[in-house]
């Protein structure tokens, strides 16, 4: 069944299992379609785009390129929208994208305390934890305890810089390249880049030790 199938079909066996929430959503889909604002195919195509086309693989390719190409890294830090656009869906990403670089001295974390602002054209839709009240409330005040819940412990002296996305500027964290990856291709490096490492709640994966 598609997400936007009309509820007009009288399948009582199935309908009785639908929750109140599901029934409300189906009703709204019906209203939008019946009033001519859109059609079922367009609604389904939006869901499909977020499930299949847009996701952290876009950001991972950007990070891997920055790790292997110093000129691209400079361009990314200078104007991330321009640098990232060729990697984006349809060859474009939104304006005011800013890349912030982790260094041994400074670790960056991104949050939206007021809602759920997130660079979704580069990382896809935000995970539940990013939208959670715990993450939104605590990250600007006690980022180290939040990081511990992600299994990340940073040196005591590392500066923690938290970027609260309160307007239409969006942040992409450029994590540090893991040791032991000399000579790796961009494609192989991208497999180490996790979504969380580009939000600042994680670090890139370590390369598998050679057997």
């Amino acid at each position: 069944m598609t997400t936007s199938e009309h509820p007009h079909g009288h399948d009582h066996g199935e309908s009785s299992e639908l929750s109140e929430t599901e029934l409300r959503v189906r009703a709204l889909q019906t209203i939008l379609i019946d009033k001519g604002y859109t059609d079922a195919a367009a609604l389904d195509a939006i869901v499909e785009a977020y499930e299949q086309k847009i996701g952290p693989h876009i950001g991972a390719r950007v990070v891997a390129r920055a790790w292997t190409d110093p000129a691209f890294r400079q361009a990314l830090l200078a104007d991330a929208t321009a640098a990232v656009s060729p990697f984006g869906q349809g060859g474009r990403v939104g304006e005011n994208l800013v890349a912030v670089e982790n260094t041994p001295e400074r670790h960056n974390m991104v949050v939206c305390t007021l809602c759920s602002c997130y660079p979704w054209d580069v990382l896809g839709l935000p995970p539940v934890w990013y939208k959670s009240f715990a993450y939104r409330s605590r990250t600007v005040k006690e980022p180290r305890s939040v990081l511990r819940e992600f299994g990340v412990t940073l040196p005591e002296r590392t500066e923690i810089r938290v970027w609260d996305s309160t307007a239409e500027v969006r942040y992409l964290v450029l994590p540090m390249r893991p040791a032991g990856t000399d000579g790796w291709s961009e494609e192989k490096l991208a497999t180490l880049v996790t979504r969380d490492s580009m939000v600042g709640t994680g670090l890139p994966r370590s390369p598998e030790p050679r057997s």
């Binding site: 977020y50 007021l114 995970p127 819940e149």
Partner: peptide, 19 residues
């Protein structure tokens, strides 16, 4: 919500689906 207390721990989900 910035700076509020009382919402507990952040709970990351492994292999989280988009929806």
């Amino acid at each position: 919500m910035g700076g509020m207390d009382g919402f507990g721990a952040v709970e990351p989900e492994e292999h989280e689906p988009v929806f």
